[in-house]
Amino acid sequence: MRIAVASGKGGTGKTTVAVAIAMAATEPVMYADCDVEEPNGSIFLKPEVYEIKKVLVDVPVIDEEKCTSCGKCARFCQFNALVSLGTPPLVFPELCHSCGGCAIVCPADAISWKGNSIGEISLGKADGGRVSVVQGKLDVGGVLAPPVIRQVKSHIPHDGLSVIDCPPGTSCPVIESIGEADYVLLVTEPTPFGLHDLKLAVETVRELGMPFAVVINRFDEGDLGVEDYCGEENILIMVKIPHRRAMAETYSRGGTLLDGIPEMREIFKDIPRIIERGIEEK
């Protein structure tokens, strides 16, 4: 089963929750860090990395012998990655979305492709080999998160338990990350900001028709807005995590939620089974 841990708002505790599920489990788990702009699960899981692979996307290469400088490719490109001023086009690889349209409209067959590196995937093992860790990392200055996320997802097995640590927000990288999950946990905090962004995230997963529940982090620190909203909308609150100084201290040293609040281990161990039962009942 694939559990995606997402949120509207950033900094609510996605990684905290995802790492806690992976570490509380007793069976083999795949931990997939799809937050490729700032992957941080490895800080807590401390995997031994055994392989690093480049993520390549295709970008156009212009054959200046064949090019007639007609400019059709540049006019076609919606991403402004090609510029033609009555000359063979200049290519801006970092703007290219690899749609392939320029090669299709080129009447001179002057466009071919080459791989351009936009990030890397690392594979590792944590917790004595029980937790497999795959992490995607976008190159500094890169903007194309979805192709890196797709590469991460290609390492997630179909069987067994997987936890997908998603990027924040509700845009393309999030859709790509939660796309093939069986269940989504939306982590939020009990503040007006948390509630506002939770509503956007709920709208997104409902649009995608995915089953989901909410996790409230530091539930005893804010207001009751999130709980009231979940009640009105008939949304399951899977778990409420208390605010504890010990948790903050542990976290700041790279420890997990299970180190900071050990009594929550059993709850997080049960989450995959609770989700599984919920899916079966539906």
């Binding site: 991403f79 402004n80 990655a81 510029v83 200049l90 801006f92 703007l95 903007v143």
Partner: peptide
Amino acid sequence: AAQGAGTQ
């Protein structure tokens, strides 16, 4: 423009 304002 989402991107490429400089080139355009």
